[in-house]
């Protein structure tokens, strides 16, 4: 459908954007529009005012400093994919990027927009959980920092309050080896299930494992029991499969037109196993 009517504001700075959001209860930020505009077209929401963030160049920087990759919320997936200098230090981001949407969507869709909408079938929420990223959220009174573990609160829901703006995502560097696995109907489609795994090995044994799953619940999940299980173990077909089982045995997955809950659990378990075996043979930094 055509978009419902809205008033339209173009701030010149983040401060102005925050003022606009604070002044109007019914205002919403417009980032790349690849989630919000379909939401408008489907009449799932009709905000009274859109605050267009596209001119805010201060939100379009990618900077590596203090062992941290700081990505502005308005960085598009295409821009991030072109910033290959960070690929060696942050392989998981780039592995996951290969699965993010279709080329035309990647050219406008932003990392901040994807995280702020927190679609359970989107890749970036899983990535920030696996990498223990920090979301920087600005408000009129100043900025606050929210860990990925506390950021996602449910289906299409996050810790961002009305009148606030996600401005930056901070990824601490890690010395894990990483793998990302996804099943979707076509390349670029929303995931049916996805898994990200990271391994820090010492003398052939797992010193720390990270396992994150996407599209199996209303938000991205870490699998602490499976991560603990792997500690001190070698990564073999058996231990990797066991970790997949532990991570998915209690899952209350959703069923939809694309996949049953049982299917999601089984595929999730298999993807964790595959990703662990792949991460185990990745060369370390």
């Amino acid at each position: 459908m055509k978009f419902p009517a809205f008033s339209y504001a173009v701030p010149a700075t983040v401060a102005e954007a925050l003022e606009l959001l604070a002044a109007d209860e019914d205002a919403r930020p417009l980032a790349g529009g690849q989630t919000l505009l379909p939401i408008l077209a489907l009449r799932m929401a009709s905000p009274g005012c859109l605050v267009d963030l596209s001119p805010l160049s201060e939100l379009k920087n990618i900077v590596f400093e203090d062992q941290t990759l700081k990505i502005g919320a308005m960085v598009t997936f295409a821009q991030l994919a072109r910033a290959t200098a960070h690929q060696a230090n942050f392989p998981l981001i780039y592995l996951a990027l290969k699965h993010v949407a279709h080329v035309a969507i990647r050219n406008r869709g932003t990392i901040g927009g994807s995280l702020a909408y927190a679609d359970a079938a989107a890749e970036m929420p899983v990535v920030v959980c696996a990498l223990n990223a920090i979301m920087v959220i600005a408000g009129v009174g100043g900025a606050r920092r929210v860990a990925a573990a506390d950021f996602f609160t449910g289906h299409f829901s996050t810790a961002i309050e009305r009148r606030e703006l996600l401005t930056q995502i901070e990824f601490p560097i890690s010395d894990h080896t990483w793998a990302f696995e996804e099943v979707s109907r076509r390349p670029g489609d929303f995931a049916l299930v996805m898994a990200a795994t990271g391994l820090r090995m010492r003398d052939g044994q797992c010193a720390e494992a990270r396992i994150a799953l996407g599209c199996v619940a209303d938000r991205p999940l870490r699998a602490p029991a499976a991560e603990a299980f792997l500690s001190g173990k070698q990564i073999t077909e058996e231990t990797a499969a066991e970790a997949g089982q532990i991570a998915t045995s209690d899952l209350k997955s959703h069923a939809d037109i694309h996949a049953s809950a049982e299917y999601r659990r089984k595929v999730g378990s298999t993807l964790i196993k595959r990703a662990l075996l792949r991460a185990a043979v990745e060369p370390r930094l």
Partner: peptide, 27 residues
Amino acid sequence: CEHGVCGACTVLVDGEPMRSCLMLGVQ
């Protein structure tokens, strides 16, 4: 489809393919 799924409306904006149904005319 008018919501970014079918790709029929794809045009080149500054040389890059984008969905013209998921962009405002004012943009």
